[in-house]
Amino acid sequence: MPATAEEVWSLDGFKAPESVLFDAKRNVFYVSNIVGEPAGKDGVGYLSKVSPDGKLQAAEWVTGFNAPKGLVMKGDTLFVTDIDRLMAVDVESGQITGTWPAEGAQFLNDPAIDEAGRVFASDMLANRIYVPDNDALSVWLESEDLLHPNGLRVEDGRLLVAGWGRDVQPDFSSKTPRHLIAIDLKTKAISDIGSGEPVGNLDGLESDGAGNWLVTDWVAGALFRIHPDGKSSS
């Protein structure tokens, strides 16, 4: 069952917002805006800043992206996936400070960081997970068992992955919705969270702070709470 969500506030002024990340140190939300096509290399994407009470602080805070999607932070650095590259932003200056291209990448989506500071980036269409390797991204893991990986999260020595589904269609739906999986960070072994029964076209992935995960389904426009046994509930 989808989890219920209560609207606290709403805000207009975005252009195809994809991800949002809260920076507790600076008490601000960062929002990625695709603006154009999700895979369009048009240079029109940007990041916005929003206050916790729903005020737009800076619509085009950082520009120079194509179609920015997932966001994750380490210290004062914000990492952003952008189709076929990972980019770094210094949040103090609002300047892009690093770019790691990913040869052969099709649709980089979500990043996550482990305790050692290693950044992982999912490629939803290519069934790959990338990591930075010197000045570029290299393939850390490639497998159909990644289920077209979307949202990522590192917990307890595992990389948790929100599987979008098998046989992704041109409209981004899939013939077979999927579930959460876990990858052992040492062995790269892939296992299901729970029984592996389909949950949905899983997208964003965050902890609910109580041992479960909140996961969005982009196609259904739904929010699920998924338990450690893989079952979803409200």
Rank of each mutant, 00 (worst) to 15 (best):
Asn150Lys: 02
Ser234Asn: 15
Asp42Phe: 06
Leu147Phe: 08
Asp133Met: 13
Thr176Asp: 13
Ser19Glu: 08
Asp12Trp: 13
Ala105Gln: 06
Asp23His: 09
His179Arg: 12
Ser122Glu: 06
Pro170Leu: 07
His179Pro: 00
Glu37Met: 13
Gly165Trp: 00
Pro17Gln: 04
Phe120Ser: 09
Met87Val: 15
Thr187Cys: 01
Ala5Ser: 12
Leu159Ser: 04
Gly163Leu: 06
Arg153Met: 15
Ile183Glu: 09
Ala24Asn: 13
Ile181Phe: 04
Val119Gln: 08
Ala39Phe: 11
Ala210Arg: 14
Asp76Ile: 12
Glu92Cys: 10
Gly117Asp: 02
Gly221Phe: 02
Thr97Leu: 11
Glu92Phe: 13
Lys49Ser: 11
Val35Lys: 03
Tyr46Pro: 00
Leu214Val: 10
Gly196Val: 06
Trp100Met: 07
Gly45Ile: 00
Val139Ala: 04
Gly98Ala: 09
Leu146Ile: 02
Glu103Asp: 12
Lys69Gly: 01
Asn201Ile: 00
Asp171Gly: 04
Leu146Arg: 02
Ala88Thr: 10
Glu7Arg: 12
Ser122Cys: 04
Phe29Met: 10
Lys41Asn: 07
Pro132Gln: 05
Val154Met: 10
Ile190His: 03
Asp133Asn: 14
Leu223Tyr: 00
Leu160Met: 13
Ser232Lys: 11
Lys25Asn: 14
Ala116Trp: 06
Leu56Lys: 08
Asp110Met: 03
Gly43Met: 00
Thr99Leu: 12
Thr97Tyr: 12
Val199Leu: 10
Val44Gln: 13
Gly163Trp: 02
Leu141Trp: 03
Ile83Met: 03
Pro68Gln: 00
Ala59Thr: 14
Leu202Phe: 00
Arg178Asp: 14
Asp42Ser: 09
Ala67Val: 01
Gly194Glu: 04
Trp140Gly: 02
Ala210Leu: 13
Val28Ala: 08
Arg85Ile: 07
Asp82Phe: 00
Asp110Asn: 04
Ile181Lys: 06
Gly43Thr: 00
Gln57Pro: 06
Ser19Asp: 14
Leu86Ala: 11
Lys41Gly: 01
Asp135Lys: 14
Tyr46Asp: 01
Arg118Ile: 14
Ala24Trp: 12
Val35Cys: 01
Arg85Met: 11
Asp133Glu: 15
Asn27Trp: 07
Pro111Ser: 07
Ala5Val: 11
Trp100Tyr: 15
Val50Asn: 08
Lys69Cys: 01
Phe172Arg: 08
Leu159His: 05
Glu142Ala: 15
Gly40Cys: 02
Asp114Trp: 04
Asp123Gly: 03
Leu141Ile: 04
Glu142Asn: 05
Ala182Ile: 11
Arg26Asp: 14
Val215Phe: 00
Gly157Glu: 06
Gly196Pro: 05
Asp229Phe: 01
Arg166Trp: 12
Leu141His: 05
Ser48Thr: 08
Asp133Cys: 12
Ser143Pro: 01
Asp217Glu: 02
